[in-house]
Computed example of a mutant assay.
Amino acid sequence: MSSCNYSISQSLIFVLAGIPGLESSHGWFSVPFFLIFVITVIGNATILCIIQAEKSLHEPMFLLLAMLSVVDLSLVSVTVPRMLAIFWMNAKEISFNACLTQMFFIPLFYVMESGILLAMAFDRFVAIWHPLRYTTILADNMLVKMAMAVLARAVVVLIPAPILAKRLENFQTNIIAYSYCAYMAVVQIACGDISDHIVYGLMVIVTSVGYDLCFIILSYGLILHAVFQIPSWEARGKALSTCGSHLCIIALFYSPVVFSVLAQILGYHMAPYLQIIMDNLYFLVPPMINPLIYGARTKQMREWVLQTLHCHRD
């Protein structure tokens, strides 16, 4: 319950604080955020161009990677430009409806990315357990169904967020201590009972990221079981190497979430500005690193880039 001696009505302009306590350093923070944005756009656009140009990459694993790149580009597009506007031009004001839009789309793309990582784990499971039926099981129509399921799940899970936030009538302040409109950040400055909103926030985590992580762990448990049934160590290594890039991305994507949950359970509290920086990095670092990991670990992609560079030199 959050009581208010003085409250502000809902029809207001919110103010995004950026990184509270470090306002004087916003200019410095804009540099890494801008570089992350540029690297992410170039990296994911390159991945999409390679997959589109190379017919040998028109197989399920790389088509799922293309979906991941599209979602990554969408995620940084709805977060970084707004952050840079705050850091560079002090453009902190945001309308209530624009705030509702942002609080829907940012977690939407994040939950979609988690769903695609689960689909990629299923892809690796099929490739190792049913290699002869791989292309049959993961035919184009199956990939379309998986993509639609990922999108539908994200929409169903997150559509209540702006609806519930719209029902909040009064606020303690119009300042949101974040660089974007996070659902819980808005809820925490509301007046009245917010317990339903807290329960909903926990349900979103459990039914999306928590669900996906559990099934990814199950998939890789079955994958390891199948791999260690292979008598040849060389064949085992080759089978596991096909999962290497995906495992790196999984660790990068889920470890901050796991760390945050464990920190809360153990009662460890970071300084507010550190928490905000960490939350920003949750959304921004994986989209930047994903194409670098796949580009470095995938032979066809390395060869395509090297061949393109060689042609430009000639």
Score class of each variant (00 low, 15 high):
residue 26 H to K: 00
residue 22 L to S: 13
residue 84 L to C: 09
residue 45 A to L: 10
residue 85 A to E: 11
residue 52 Q to A: 11
residue 109 F to R: 12
residue 49 C to P: 05
residue 30 S to C: 00
residue 30 S to P: 00
residue 23 E to S: 04
residue 71 V to K: 08
residue 65 L to H: 06
residue 44 N to Q: 07
residue 32 P to Y: 02
residue 44 N to F: 03
residue 69 S to I: 01
residue 47 I to W: 05
residue 56 S to F: 08
residue 114 S to W: 01
residue 68 L to E: 13
residue 53 A to V: 11
residue 41 V to D: 00
residue 77 S to Y: 05
residue 49 C to F: 10
residue 85 A to H: 11
residue 44 N to H: 05
residue 3 S to N: 11
residue 60 P to F: 03
residue 80 V to Q: 06
residue 38 V to M: 13
residue 46 T to L: 07
residue 49 C to T: 14
residue 34 F to M: 10
residue 111 V to P: 08
residue 64 L to H: 02
residue 61 M to I: 13
residue 37 F to R: 05
residue 103 M to T: 12
residue 37 F to P: 01
residue 61 M to N: 12
residue 108 L to P: 08
residue 94 I to V: 08
residue 63 L to H: 06
residue 22 L to T: 09
residue 74 S to D: 15
residue 115 G to E: 00
residue 80 V to R: 02
residue 8 I to Y: 09
residue 108 L to E: 05
residue 52 Q to V: 11
residue 100 L to Q: 03
residue 54 E to A: 15
residue 68 L to I: 12
residue 75 L to E: 12
residue 45 A to G: 14
residue 44 N to I: 02
residue 115 G to A: 03
residue 98 A to C: 08
residue 21 G to K: 03
residue 78 V to Y: 04
residue 32 P to A: 05
residue 86 I to G: 01
residue 50 I to K: 11
residue 69 S to V: 02
residue 53 A to H: 14
residue 115 G to Y: 00
residue 96 F to T: 13
residue 30 S to G: 01
residue 6 Y to Q: 14
residue 33 F to L: 06
residue 20 P to N: 14
residue 64 L to P: 00
residue 111 V to A: 15
residue 34 F to C: 06
residue 106 I to K: 06
residue 85 A to G: 06
residue 79 T to F: 11
residue 41 V to M: 07
residue 29 F to C: 01
residue 99 C to M: 01
residue 54 E to G: 15
residue 41 V to S: 04
residue 103 M to Y: 02
residue 104 F to K: 01
residue 2 S to M: 12
residue 32 P to F: 01
residue 79 T to I: 13
residue 43 G to W: 01
residue 79 T to Y: 14
residue 51 I to T: 10
residue 46 T to S: 14
residue 95 S to I: 03
residue 95 S to M: 04
residue 100 L to R: 03
residue 62 F to A: 08
residue 71 V to F: 10
residue 55 K to N: 09
residue 52 Q to G: 09
residue 90 N to E: 12
residue 84 L to P: 06
residue 15 V to Y: 10
residue 54 E to K: 14
residue 87 F to A: 02
residue 25 S to H: 11
residue 66 A to T: 01
residue 6 Y to T: 14
residue 98 A to G: 10
residue 27 G to F: 00
residue 60 P to Y: 04
residue 41 V to K: 03
residue 39 I to A: 12
residue 6 Y to D: 12
residue 4 C to D: 08
residue 92 K to I: 01
residue 43 G to Y: 02
residue 99 C to H: 00
residue 23 E to C: 03
residue 99 C to I: 03
residue 73 L to F: 09
residue 106 I to L: 15
residue 3 S to F: 14
residue 91 A to T: 07
residue 60 P to N: 04
residue 18 G to L: 05
residue 75 L to G: 10
residue 10 Q to W: 06
residue 60 P to R: 04
residue 81 P to I: 02
